Amino acid sequence: MTNGHHVVVLGAGYTGMFSAVRLAHRTRRIDVKITLVNPSSRFVERLRMHQIAAGQRLADHQIPDLLAGTGVTFVQGTATAIDPETRRITVDGSTSLGYDTLVYALGSSTDTGKVPGADDHAFTLNSPEIADRFAARLTEVAAAGGTVTVCGAGLTGIEAATEIAESRTGLRVTLISPDEPGGMMGAKARAHLYRALDRLGITLETHARVTKVLPEGVELADGRIVRSDACLWTAGVKVSPLAADAGIATDDRGLILVDATLRSMSHPEIHAIGDAAAVRLAWGQLHGSCQSGLPTAQYTADTIARLIRGKTVKPFRFGYYHQPVSLGRRDAVIQFTRTDFTPRRQCLTGRGAVMYKEMVNGSPLTTYRLSKRMNVTTIISKGGRATHRPAA
């Protein structure tokens, strides 16, 4: 690679922002231009979206402010096409950006397309604007003593249901899922979760599959209708079709297939990170989360800096270490995990867990600010011996 290198980062979520800021610091003494492309100028704290949905006001962090002093150029717009052969990106259907290296960090969003009516009658946490509209609807529903349904009892659904139930007195909350809430936790952490759900008066509909979302309820596979004055959909995710449409090799979900250095299997000048990448390690495949996303961003920024300097790179290594879940503002549970995300015996609950979770939620912004002047690591665990072996 030569000097005058142009790196374009698509997406300014947790991973895209970190990769841009860290790469700027790592290449500050060489001729590298970095451009960050994102549809909105607001940095979205996805870890706190359930708080917005419950009606809480969060700080408005602007991307240009977070980039100040880094030398990174911010382009506000939506990437609408990629031409890997000419190495050009089309933004908003007209503007064209050339690149030498592309960091693909477009992330994922809630998928409302698989269940009839979900797209028309359910809210999501895909953006602060949608979450704000849901919060406004909750105010109306709570005033009438109505019911809200949260569909999906993964971590997002659990956090949303508990936040809503705690902050909206007089509102009935029903959590609907085909699986048991906290099924990925150990017995002690799961017991604490169920006590919190019971304390907050949340009704559980487990082993229940939603087949249709209606204007005033959700229909289950057994034919029952669960009344719902407002429905929040948190079940299932999808990724942008941009990579697949461009002919970049992807899996059946649209995630970019990457090698051991997180470079596209079909186009090695493209690096995929976070939810956009199908990252497989010896112990299994990463799932979308900030916990694994930030390490992929850190690794990729370091990898690109090394490649530009003509140096070799080592394979990406990572292991999970915790599963933090907020249960409203006054309770939380932290399940500590093995490398492959299976639960250990240890967990943290109560006030200590609340403080721990708040530290986790606030750590990305602190990391960005510190990364302007030093190399800050987000890789707590490299997975031990399991990640020394090549993926199967």
Rank of each mutant, 00 (worst) to 15 (best):
Arg199Trp: 05
Ala246Gln: 01
Ala196Tyr: 09
Asp245Glu: 15
Ala260Glu: 15
Pro64Arg: 04
Arg88Val: 00
Ile30Cys: 02
Ser371Arg: 04
Pro116Ile: 05
Phe43Lys: 09
Cys231Met: 12
Asp179Trp: 01
His192Ile: 09
Pro178Glu: 05
Phe134Ile: 07
Ala142Val: 08
Thr112Pro: 05
Phe43His: 13
Val21Met: 04
Ser326Asn: 08
Gly11Ser: 03
Ala24Pro: 03
Ala187Cys: 10
Ala24Arg: 02
Glu216Thr: 12
Thr296Ala: 03
Pro343Leu: 10
Ala144Met: 09
Gly383Trp: 06
Gly217His: 03
Asp92Ser: 02
Thr147Pro: 09
Val8Cys: 12
Arg190Cys: 03
Arg28Lys: 09
Phe134Glu: 03
Ser326Ile: 05
Ser94Tyr: 10
Thr86His: 10
Asp275Phe: 00
Ser167Lys: 15
Gly11Val: 08
Thr147Ile: 11
Arg133Gly: 06
His287Phe: 15
Ala277Gln: 04
Thr149His: 07
Ala53His: 00
Leu255Lys: 08
Gly71Val: 02
Met1Ile: 14
Arg22Gly: 08
Glu216Lys: 12
Glu140Trp: 08
Val226Asp: 04
Ala189Leu: 06
Ala81Arg: 13
Thr2Lys: 14
Ala20Gly: 11
Gln62Asp: 13
Ile52Val: 15
Ala243Lys: 04
Leu138Ala: 05
Arg329Gly: 09
Glu166Ile: 10
Thr211Cys: 00
Ala135Cys: 04
Leu171Tyr: 02
Gly107Tyr: 00
Leu175Met: 13
Ile30Trp: 02
Pro64Thr: 00
Pro268Gly: 07
Ser240His: 01
Ala305Tyr: 01
Ala135Gly: 02
Ile52Pro: 02
Asp198Ala: 14
Asp132His: 14
Leu257His: 08
Gln56Arg: 14
His6Thr: 11
Thr147Tyr: 07
Leu36Thr: 05
Val360Trp: 09
Thr95Ile: 10
Val141Ser: 06
Pro215Tyr: 14
Arg330Lys: 13
Gly247Thr: 03
Thr147Val: 14
Lys188Gln: 15
Leu286Thr: 00
Met185Gln: 11
Thr156Phe: 04
Ala189Ile: 07
Ile304Trp: 02
Val360Gly: 06
Ser177Leu: 07
Leu102Ala: 02
Pro84Met: 14
Gly383Cys: 11
Ala165Pro: 04
Ala208Asp: 02
Ala305Val: 01
Phe336Met: 11
Leu257Asn: 10
Thr312Met: 13
Asp132Trp: 13
Ile202Cys: 07
Pro268Asn: 13
Thr95Glu: 15
Gln62Pro: 08
Pro128Asn: 10
Val103Tyr: 02
Pro116Lys: 09
Glu163Lys: 00
Thr27Leu: 07
Val7Leu: 09
Asp111Lys: 00
His25Pro: 10
Ile273Arg: 04
Arg306Cys: 14
Glu166Phe: 12
Leu97Asn: 01
Arg253Val: 10
Glu45Cys: 06
Phe123Ala: 15
Leu365Ile: 13
Gly183Arg: 14
Thr296Asn: 09
Tyr194Trp: 13
His61Gly: 01
Ile63Lys: 00
Gln51Glu: 15
Ile89Trp: 11
Ser371Asn: 03
Ser266Val: 10
Ala189Arg: 07
Thr211Lys: 06
Glu166His: 13
Ser381Asn: 06
Ala187Trp: 11
Leu348Pro: 01
Arg369Pro: 08
Pro215Arg: 14
Leu138Arg: 07
Gly186Thr: 07
Gln335Asp: 02
Ala208His: 07
Thr387Cys: 12
